[in-house]
């Protein structure tokens, strides 16, 4: 890019709008983070920095509820993301390394279906489905629903990565009398790892964050963090919710950061 082009490329005001965009995106999060350290019971008064609301999350009257909810959330997210990533990795191999075939478009449509169906519709459909087959709602229904809608989120980065990997490595291995299975596990999978890890992390966060579908399919007394937060927040925003939000925010940021650096460490070049 020659410096001469710079003038043509830059428009006055665009930088200001970008900064405005960042302010809009971050302002609510920053405000919540700041207020989570507020010593005051009241939301509007500032009475100095304190960790009391963080302590409240772990020891306060609602701590039991949030602990169970956090356990459920992480359990569901780990299992759903693991299963979804496994399914998505196999499917991506079939789609990208399986040649041209008749049901390719249909398969792709099916895999991306959870992305195309609006979330509230998927929630209603899942509720109706479990209800019509008499499947009792509980932890398992949440888990199943999460596995389904996590698949496309895991699939997209995995297949994108696989498309970027030349098959010459596997071909070389096959030429050296490796079996297909060996070529897959010894060559393709390691090469795919960054894609698989970002797929897993995406699926994990999507599952951890889901509220609408979980709210529809959850069973008696089974709460995840988002549903527990929603239950509390509906009666007004409390400082302990801000503390939980800030902690969840940190988890999300750490996960996305890992995913970012993993996907950057390109081992095919």
């Amino acid at each position: 890019m020659a410096s001469k082009q710079f003038n043509i490329k830059s428009y006055t005001g665009f930088k200001a709008i970008t900064l405005l965009c960042l302010v809009v995106l971050y302002a609510p999060l920053v405000v919540v983070t700041i207020y989570s350290f507020n010593a005051s019971q009241s939301l509007t008064n500032w009475e100095g920095v304190s960790l009391r609301w963080y302590a409240d999350v772990f020891t306060g009257p609602e701590s039991g509820k949030f602990k169970t909810a956090a356990k459920n959330s992480f359990f569901i997210a780990i299992v759903a993301a693991t299963v979804a990533t496994t399914i998505a990795t196999l499917a991506a191999t079939g789609m990208v390394r399986g040649g041209r075939f008749r049901f390719r478009t249909v398969s792709f449509g099916l895999i991306s279906l959870p992305l195309m169906v609006p979330e509230i519709v998927l929630a209603v459909a899942t509720l109706i489905f479990f209800n019509s087959i008499g499947f009792e709602r509980g932890l398992l229904t949440i888990l199943l629903a999460h596995i389904a809608f996590c698949i496309p989120f895991a699939y997209l980065p995995i297949s994108a990565r696989m498309q970027g990997i030349e098959d010459s490595y596997e071909q070389a291995a096959l030429d050296l009398y490796a079996t297909k299975r060996q070529a897959f596990t010894k060559i393709l999978l390691p090469l795919m790892m960054p894609g698989i890890i970002s797929g897993f992390l995406l699926a994990f966060i999507v599952s951890l964050d889901d509220f609408i579908i979980t709210n529809f399919v959850k069973g008696a007394g089974v709460e995840t963090l988002p549903t527990a937060i929603f239950g509390s927040v509906k009666q007004g925003i409390k400082p302990n919710i801000m503390a939980i939000s800030t902690m969840l925010l940190s988890v999300s940021i750490v996960m996305v950061t890992i995913s970012y650096f993993v996907s950057k460490s390109d081992n095919t070049k």
Partner: peptide, 24 residues
């Protein structure tokens, strides 16, 4: 004790009808 909460009689009825009976 595990507790779920609702905010109206009607919401509770709806949830019990939608498969909640037998779990609470």
């Amino acid at each position: 004790v595990t507790m779920d909460t609702y905010d109206s009689n009607e919401a509770m009825l709806a949830s019990l009808k939608a498969g909640g009976i037998g779990t609470y």
